[in-house]
Amino acid sequence: MDATPQMTCQTAREAFPEFLDFRTAPTARMAERSHLAVCPDCQREFATLTRIATALDEAPSALPSGRMRQRFYAMLEEEKHSARSIHLAAEREHHARGLSLWRRLGLPLAGCALLAAGFVGGTRFSARSPESQDHSDPEARRQLADLQQRVNAMGQLVGYSLIQQRHSPTVDRLQGVLTSASRENPPPQVINELISALALDPSAHVRLSALDGLAAHLEQEVVRAGVLACLAREENPLVQVSMIDLLATARDASARPAIEKLSTNVTTDRNVRDAARRALAQL
């Protein structure tokens, strides 16, 4: 039915949601209201919708159980505790980073400073003895060689200390490994630290660098035994393949059982099994 020439029942009913919303001003949509006032079909439609909307609004509200409040506050306490733990951990980290910086840079620098002071002092002392200025003097040459050796050892120790600090950033540990690995004749403790980095460092990059460093010292039995021991615990296929290749290059027959085991283990990465089979052919 059309109450007004412009208004149809369909157009008027589009305004019903607003009429059913108590926040709508009584003066809004006057054309539709005028239609509703004179259209019995729309009045019936609007009356039934109003009844349902009112019933819905007046439907009884349920109360949650008391357990819900307990669960909420338990969750809130847990979150507060967790947030506090994170805050404390961040503070500890910050504190540890300060200490770590001192250990990483301060101690080696202090060592270098002491060495430099000793060198300057020695130079001044020797300058007072004309006979010692002659570099052709065997004693002076021996002292200079000794000094050179100490400087080299100091450099090695800096690298060594960097590897040891497994909580320091990966890039620093990598730098430590590279420094130690670049020495031509590393002392046993540096070899040990390289093996230790190969076995324990969480970063595959650091372990691969340690392996590269050890590759230059394959003639040492301790190096081959170390690599073999690390192979059993290694899980990264890239590092496993590098270790197998290294042991095959060294023609270390004692590695055969471990490599055979890898070549037949179906859970091992396919690339690792292939590398193991190649190595067995070489061995």
Partner: peptide, 19 residues
């Protein structure tokens, strides 16, 4: 970061949300 304020929001809204 004031997590205790969530308790106030819970008290104010949880009944209606539950409904």
């Amino acid at each position: 970061g004031e997590l205790n304020a969530l308790g106030e929001l819970f008290e104010r809204h949880h009944g209606r949300l539950y409904g």
